[in-house]
């Protein structure tokens, strides 16, 4: 596998670049700047960096007020607290009036491995996806996170960007192609398709590589945007390969797996398996990969799911 890179590190530096272009861009911080890497922005544009203190719900309201006055606020905190704790504020104060607030959830999924299950986020995509007109983006790696940030800042209205803590495997190169709502085909195949997002994209590519050695040809789709969902890409993958596996670092309830299942049931019923967090809480682990393995988020799990869907064709 390719080398690792930190999504947050790249995101933090990209914010500075965007701040140079967009004078209305402001960043709000619920006292986690050092972790979310918005410190680069704070150093460069102290007058556009707003300390909120540890109060995510207030932060979302303040962002709404800033957006109502013409600013482009980026409210960045841990996914569990900025997205899940503040869900109703996001729905009522931001999304209902379609305000131009960009919400960034860091430390998503199991990536705060050592902190344990109070910090691990399994439902943020589900709760963001249910909000009308909310854009929900889960980039695969650091280069894609940079492009995704640029895209949501360029697109008016509310958006949620989900990022991982720490360095994660890289699947893209800098300046990669990214269009909001259009999936990227990472690898073509004919026997089955893996539709993945976030850190599961590089793992899906690894799975496709080992299945290829068994003679199984797997298509890998990076569904970085969960909403608006690229349903055409899902139907096309189902038509081409007749077997679908989803892979996400999120509960299989309500996230990418659910979104793909909804599409397939309505448009093209196809044998399908979901790889993700199986309706359970995580736990502390000093090793991220050990926790991912224990929770079933591995290349092996994807490979087994691919074989299972192929049996059901």
């Amino acid at each position: 596998m390719a080398q690792n890179a930190s999504q947050l590190e790249h995101f933090g530096r990209a914010l500075v670049d965007l701040g140079l272009i967009n004078e209305e861009l402001v960043v709000l911080d619920p006292d986690v700047a050092a972790s979310t890497k918005v410190t680069y922005f704070a150093e460069r544009f102290p007058e556009r960096f707003i300390r909120i203190g540890i109060s995510e719900q207030d932060m979302i309201g303040v962002a709404a007020g800033l957006a109502a006055s013409g600013k482009t606020p980026v409210a960045c905190g841990f996914a569990m607290f900025v997205a899940c704790r503040s869900w109703e504020q996001i729905s009522s104060s931001v999304a209902r009036p379609e305000l131009n607030v960009k919400i960034v959830g860091s430390h998503s999924g199991l990536s705060p491995n050592a902190d344990g299950d109070s910090h691990q986020t399994y439902g943020d995509v589900a709760v963001m996806r249910v909000i009308p007109d909310m854009k929900v983006v889960v980039p695969a790696d650091a280069p894609e996170a940079v492009e995704a940030l640029g895209a949501i800042v360029d697109t008016p209205g509310p958006a949620y960007l989900r990022l991982a803590r720490g360095a994660t495997p890289v699947a893209y190169t800098e300046g990669c192609e990214f269009t909001l709502g259009r999936a990227n085909v990472m690898r073509d195949g004919s026997d089955a398709s893996v539709i993945a997002n976030g850190v599961m994209v590089p793992i899906a590519l690894e799975a496709a590589g080992s299945l290829a050695r068994e003679g199984i040809s797997v298509k890998v789709v990076d569904m970085h945007t969960v909403k608006p969902l690229d349903t055409d890409a899902i139907v096309k993958a189902a038509a081409e390969t007749g077997a679908i596996v989803t892979a996400e670092e999120h509960s299989v309830i309500g996230g990418l797996g659910s979104a793909v299942a909804e599409t397939l049931v309505e448009k093209r019923p196809t044998p399908m398996e979901r790889v993700g967090i199986m309706d359970r809480f995580g736990e502390s682990s000093r090793s991220y990969s050990a926790l991912m393995a224990k929770m079933g988020l591995t290349s092996d799990a994807i490979e087994e799911a691919v074989r299972e869907t192929m049996r059901r064709k």
Partner: peptide
């Protein structure tokens, strides 16, 4: 401002 859910308006005012 869009309001109705109690408790949220002062934060919006702070942003403004």
């Amino acid at each position: 401002a869009s309001t109705g859910s109690l408790g949220q308006g002062l934060s919006i005012g702070v942003g403004m």
